[in-house]
């Protein structure tokens, strides 16, 4: 038991996100799902086996490049279910803030997409 580096089993250490970020948080209800995130109809991210960690209620946080359009439509597809949200990213690239959406599946199976709160998670 001696002090040493953290090590990483998944490649290089993650980096702090830069100013002005756009992210989709995959929250409660995911259980080995096939998930895609699309912006204006174009698939930007896809992963199989997405599963929520209920110690934080998050399965993954998908960081995306700032969309070219000011009012992009974000779509999250989970299997055959889909939810969309039109968002305003005007000025996000210069303000340094983060716009985060949250997709969740309720216990009855309904998929919803909305703005994530910035409240702490434990």
């Amino acid at each position: 038991m001696s002090g040493s580096d953290a090590g990483s089993s998944s490649g290089a250490p993650a980096a702090e996100p830069g100013p002005g970020t756009f992210a989709v948080e995959l929250a409660e209800g995911f259980a080995g799902d096939d998930v895609s995130v699309l912006i204006d109809g174009r698939q930007m991210w896809h992963r199989n086996g997405v599963t929520t960690n209920y110690s934080v209620g998050i399965a993954d946080v998908v960081r995306l490049p700032l969309p070219a359009s000011a009012w992009p439509t974000v779509e999250v597809q989970v299997g055959r279910r889909s939810a969309t949200q039109r968002v305003d990213v005007t000025g996000l690239g210069t303000s340094g803030g983060e716009l985060r959406l949250r997709a969740r599946i309720d216990p009855a199976g309904a998929l919803t997409l909305g703005t994530a709160s910035d409240e702490p998670r434990f």
């Binding site: 038991m1 002090g3 040493s4 580096d5 953290a6 090590g7 089993s9 250490p13 993650a14 980096a15």
Partner: peptide, 28 residues
């Protein structure tokens, strides 16, 4: 006890994978 100090680069962000790896390495 334990009390390992795990050295990381400045601004290091943990992932779930790196946390699990650290547990296997440092949890005696």
């Amino acid at each position: 006890g334990g009390g390992n100090v795990i050295n990381t680069p400045s601004g290091y962000l943990w992932t779930n994978a790196s946390l699990h790896h650290a547990m296997q390495r440092h949890f005696s």
